[in-house]
């Protein structure tokens, strides 16, 4: 916190219009709860558990949830837009263990701790079922009752290319290319966001020049994050058919959450065989985990969109560069989650 307020520590003054006294996060949380509850109610699994029943009645309330989220975001951004860093409360000296650490920074880390628990629960679920269901590979050559549940990992379709192992590059199947591009996109975006922070802290640049550079780095991060989601949509729903590349989507490969009769072909020549298996569990956990990660990327894109606009208006400088740092913590966490998700779900 700056000296112009006459004291150095503690969020004891709430009249600044600074974002630290905002109700917006609570409004956004309520909106998220309303949206998720009613969106989930619109879809129910059928009796055979191999499809769903759609009911449009809850959708208006789900849309109302989205409207609440949007209102919370607008409110938050309006408060933050004028924030120039002149009021950055710190934990009171002596309040161990966070003495003199920015309260927002601690808050962001506590938030990231809760995020770690979300992804850990997904990984625990993954381990739980992967260790308890036979791998489809291990059933090859045996007599299998049609509809037997077995684990056919997403890597069968992605890293191995499934039954369509077309390889334009020669050293990897085309199906793996979107995932590989995404991995590089996230790593590069982590770099561009720290470069935005580093540039915002520079005092040797004129404000206008610094603002343009910060905007460009944030804009690059925004584009890379968007590329990530586009590639994910291509991989899931569209298929990678760009130029010489030829990889069907996971949907057209029938890797879906209600496929209880997947025809798994294996082997070559005299050892070739086929069996009809239930792959719902592997598909469900894959889509749930990578989808949860994708939602985090989308949330990051929304935040980045705002930050690009603020940077374009010259809103970031050495005084409030920490705002970029705190968003960066979230963005690096999304990258970290991908570091774990990519090998576990795409490669193994």
């Amino acid at each position: 916190m700056s000296d112009d307020h006459g004291y150095h520590h503690g969020p004891h003054e709430w009249s600044h219009g600074a974002p630290h006294n905002s109700w917006a996060p609570i409004i956004i949380s309520i909106g998220s709860g309303v949206f998720l509850f009613f969106f989930a109610k619109a879809f129910t699994m059928n009796e055979g558990m191999n499809g769903y029943i759609y009911d449009s009645a809850p959708l208006p309330l789900a849309i109302a949830g989205l409207a609440i989220i949007f209102a919370g975001l607008i409110s938050w951004w309006k408060q933050d837009f004028s924030f120039d860093g002149s009021y950055e409360p710190q934990a009171t000296h002596g309040s161990t263990p966070f003495s003199n650490v920015d309260i927002r920074k601690v808050g962001m880390w506590v938030f990231l701790m809760s995020e770690m628990m979300i992804f850990s629960s997904l990984f625990a679920t993954y381990i739980r079922y992967r260790t308890s269901i036979d791998s489809c590979y291990s059933l090859e050559g045996t007599v299998v009752e049609p509809g037997t549940a077995c684990w056919l990992p997403a890597s069968y379709f992605i890293a191995k290319g499934g039954e369509h192992a077309h390889s334009t590059l020669g050293f990897m199947p085309d199906a793996l290319v979107p995932g590989a591009i995404n991995t590089f996109a996230l790593i590069i975006s982590s770099y561009t966001i720290v470069m935005a922070l580093k540039t915002a802290k520079r005092t040797d640049l004129e404000h206008a020049e610094r603002s343009i550079k910060v905007r460009n780095y944030l804009g690059a991060t925004f584009c890379l994050a968007t590329l990530f989601l586009v590639m994910k949509m291509i991989e899931w729903f569209i298929g990678f058919h760009i130029g010489p590349f030829e990889a069907p989507s996971l949907l057209s490969d029938q890797f879906t959450i209600h496929n209880d009769a997947y025809t798994y072909n294996y082997g070559h020549g005299a050892e070739a065989g086929a069996m009809t298996v239930d792959i719902r569990m592997a598909a469900s956990i894959f889509y749930l985990t990578t989808g949860t990660h994708g939602v985090h990327v989308f949330a990051g894109i929304v935040g980045l969109g705002y930050m690009v606009v603020k940077a374009h208006k010259g809103g970031y400088g050495p005084g409030n560069s920490v705002s970029i740092e705190y968003f960066g913590l979230y963005w690096h966490f999304v990258d970290l989650a991908w570091v774990a998700v990519f090998p576990a779900f795409y490669l193994y």
């Binding site: 628990m117 850990s120 990984f123 625990a124 679920t125 381990i127 739980r128 308890s132």
Partner: peptide, 13 residues
């Protein structure tokens, strides 16, 4: 704890 108590609680894990 999650990994030990949930991830490895399958009877055959």
């Amino acid at each position: 704890l999650l990994v030990l108590m949930v991830g490895l609680t399958s009877p055959s894990a």
